[in-house]
Design a protein around this nucleic acid. Sequence first.
DNA 1: GTGGTCTAGACCACT
DNA 2: GTGGTCTAGACCACT
Lengths: 131, 131, 131, 131
Amino acid sequence: MIVTINYRDKRPIYKQITDSIKEQILSGVLKPDEQLTSVRQLAMEININPNTIAKAYAELERSGIIYSAMGRGYFVNNDLSEAYKMREAEISKTLCQCVGNAVQCGMSKEKVIDVIEKAYAEIEEREREKE
Amino acid sequence: MIVTINYRDKRPIYKQITDSIKEQILSGVLKPDEQLTSVRQLAMEININPNTIAKAYAELERSGIIYSAMGRGYFVNNDLSEAYKMREAEISKTLCQCVGNAVQCGMSKEKVIDVIEKAYAEIEEREREKE
Amino acid sequence: MIVTINYRDKRPIYKQITDSIKEQILSGVLKPDEQLTSVRQLAMEININPNTIAKAYAELERSGIIYSAMGRGYFVNNDLSEAYKMREAEISKTLCQCVGNAVQCGMSKEKVIDVIEKAYAEIEEREREKE
Amino acid sequence: MIVTINYRDKRPIYKQITDSIKEQILSGVLKPDEQLTSVRQLAMEININPNTIAKAYAELERSGIIYSAMGRGYFVNNDLSEAYKMREAEISKTLCQCVGNAVQCGMSKEKVIDVIEKAYAEIEEREREKE
DNA sequence: GTGGTCTAGACCACT
DNA sequence: GTGGTCTAGACCACT
């Protein structure tokens, strides 16, 4: 499990941690039932106050992505369907807002679709380079 | 000029004000050189401290959307091309992030495009109803 | 005598007026003992409150560039040597500050001289075009 | 970090603070990633309201010279190239205006260059004295 | 009347 | 401890 903190990032540290772990879980890097690095261990590794790590883990537990087993640590949840649904809903909502904003400031539908297509092209490009 | 504050909104008050006025200017509701409601006047109308209104107006001035003239008030800027460009860049950036997030959590490209299409359909629907 | 107000200019209106008239006097467009447009007349011409014009004229009188003759109006001063000296002192002071700032942020002396030379070249260029 | 307020200075307090800190950063007295004195601490030290300090710091952040991290404080930015460029542009602009003013009031080019040379000589003199 | 600056003091989220 | 937001109210310069 890799978590890197960017001190120039405007997101609070606990949020950077939850976002990073959530991403690794939803993209399959961290598998169901896999154990997360312990609070103390991660705190040492990335040089962050344990309270902040604990806050991040508690948040992930609340959103149903990980679960805690008293005294044994935190583990990736088995059933992530709820998490996937919420994530999709979030993304859809943001996309709708973007469309609203685009219409409002006179950005054409073609331009919007073009931006989307280019974003996909760029991602595919990067995938190919990795291989 | 209409500004309404929603206390349940997570955005700070000054941000709600800037967003609302920016929207009215970029969508043409407020015309170039039109005078904004004065700081004190708006403060009274929406029952918000003048300092907060002043902060919002200062932010809009910094982003080149309005300008101030000592002793006379705030006015909508004539040349909004820079503001439009920045707005488009913002929207494009958010769209790209959405695409990245979608790919990451397994949301298909078809689904993304579909969300976009439906958002446009809904906006057109609403436009038709207005007539 | 020509005075134009730029509402987007950050200088207060009275300051724009004094600067404009001072420039015309020091550059010889307005001759010694020439009468200035009357307060009321100028107020009408440029659509500015007479109080503001009066304030500008009072300021020019204070700095010894014009004089008032009770009931007859304002006139360009005969002896502008003092005004020229003060202007030169102002310019020298600003130049010295610029040099200080340049040194401080690592801008070379060559660069500073170059900017000066180019400024002169541009002015000469414009002079030639006028002819 | 040293900041001193001069109540006779015509610049507003927050401007004196930004100018002073900007100078210390661009001249290398404050190093990249170095932490600034906290808002409350500086407020106490120079006996100025914390709001005024916060305004100054926010301005420095906006101009890309420092950055803030919630709960931790303000830090000198790593990449100051943008700030240096803007500073140079500012200085060049002021120099050009000086040249324009000089020409206008009959101050010769030789005189302008002379003022520049003397300003440099004085700075070198002071440097030598320090050693 | 207009905006710009400043003080004093409160409460919040984050570390 | 840190910064961010907000209120209340004062005083200033400019129109």
